[in-house]
Design a protein around this nucleic acid. Structure first.
Lengths: 112, 112
DNA sequence: TATATAAAGTTCTTATTTGGAACTTATGGC
DNA sequence: GCCATAAGTTCCAAATAAGAACTTTATATA
């Protein structure tokens, strides 16, 4: 079974996962909430490959969670910003953050 | 980069994703909150392969999110139950559920 | 003119993960 | 002996991801 097959599942959790049930997608959304919006920012912040970021941004735009906006005309450059639908994903990320802070403390300092 | 490499990331969201940032893992947790606890229940409920379920349950037990408990001695049979750490994941799943209910309504009835 | 930089991707090849079905082990019932 | 149940494991083909280099459009510098 493919995970996109979950999009018509009876369970709202499953349907949500068909879109964002993937670590890189969720990291991109985290970055958006931290104020990032550009391709290369997502690449260096998440550590995912350019290929992955490209793919996940397309999905997020198609799902209307992010919106692609031109911020420069020449050369044509785009950035990705949260739609209202995307903004409303905040509680989920905050729940992840809280759980991680409580149950997965960092031992040694590392960078990502 | 491998996703398990996120486990020492500075960001608590990333650390959380290193454990549960995967659709099948989160669906297994959803099932646990719905009262399921057995291997075959997870297989048929999620639609994931036995292989995947086996792998994800191992990770969840290792992370102390689930606990493996014998419910039969002969033959030896185990079930998986949420630990307190696992229970505290509820708010995250509820956030997913709420977002899905609001933003991803089902069109036609389907089963998963 | 030639070179370098920047941003946002795409392309290529190799490695890792997943899918799907069948098989295993232990036990009880008919 | 034969079938069923539960919890996995094994095998191979198919799909995804990793990593690095390349492309495109345009500005800046020597």
């Amino acid at each position: 079974m493919k995970w996109t097959d979950l999009d018509e599942n009876w369970c709202p959790v499953a349907r949500t996962l068909s879109l964002v049930g993937d670590r890189w997608t969720l990291l991109i959304l985290r970055d958006c909430f931290l104020g990032m919006s550009r391709f290369d920012q997502f690449v260096s912040s998440t550590g995912a490959t350019r290929h992955l970021i490209s793919d996940r941004l397309k999905r997020l735009v198609e799902a209307e969670i992010l919106e692609k906006q031109a911020y420069s005309e020449r050369p044509k450059r785009y950035e990705y910003v949260l739609t209202e639908k995307g903004q409303e994903f905040a509680p989920a990320l905050m729940a992840f953050r809280d759980w991680g802070k409580k149950h997965l403390p960092v031992r040694r300092q590392s960078q990502g």
